[in-house]
């Protein structure tokens, strides 16, 4: 049941990425190219997503609990440690090189471009390495 419901949510998320143009790395890279062929579209994607999530989360969290399960799995940390700076710094470099972040890359998988088919296994490997390293050095945390 949760598999099918989540599949529907993934479809909606992925369709959003395609409709917004974010499944195209060229559009993302042009957003990041302020001094070249700048395309501000990504700011509208973030704006639309944050607008809906900001309002929606307030309504949902006011319920006290989700439909399935007994509690909301929300990150509780508010300290700024080295990882929350180093991780995004590394991620941003890779994002700027390929124009892919994890969501759009997965959305592009079925379209079968050579660049995508090499990016995805490398990304999964990188994720796995970070998890194993993190769990070896510190207590597991919610993302």
């Amino acid at each position: 049941m949760s598999f099918l419901v989540n599949l529907a949510f993934g479809l909606l998320f992925g369709a959003g990425l395609v409709v917004s143009g974010m499944s195209d790395p060229a559009k993302v890279l042009n957003f990041l190219d302020l001094f070249g062929t700048w395309d501000p579209s990504l700011a509208f994607v973030m704006g639309g997503a944050v607008l809906v999530t900001f309002a929606g989360y307030r309504l949902v969290l006011a319920r006290g609990e989700p439909i399935v399960g007994t509690r909301f799995h929300l990150p509780t940390r508010s300290d700024i440690d080295a990882r929350v700076v180093a991780g995004p710094a590394i991620f941003g470099i890779g994002w700027g090189l390929g124009g892919f972040c994890p969501g759009p890359a997965l959305t592009a998988l079925g379209l079968g471009a050579t660049g995508t088919l090499t990016f995805i296994p490398a990304m999964i490997l990188g994720m796995w390495a970070a998890r194993l390293l993190a769990e070896g050095t510190a207590a597991p945390r919610a993302a």
Partner: peptide, 14 residues
């Protein structure tokens, strides 16, 4: 290289 950096960095930074 991009994939490794994106994968590692995104999980390392939660």
């Amino acid at each position: 290289a991009a994939g490794l950096l994106v994968g590692f960095g995104s999980v390392w930074g939660n």
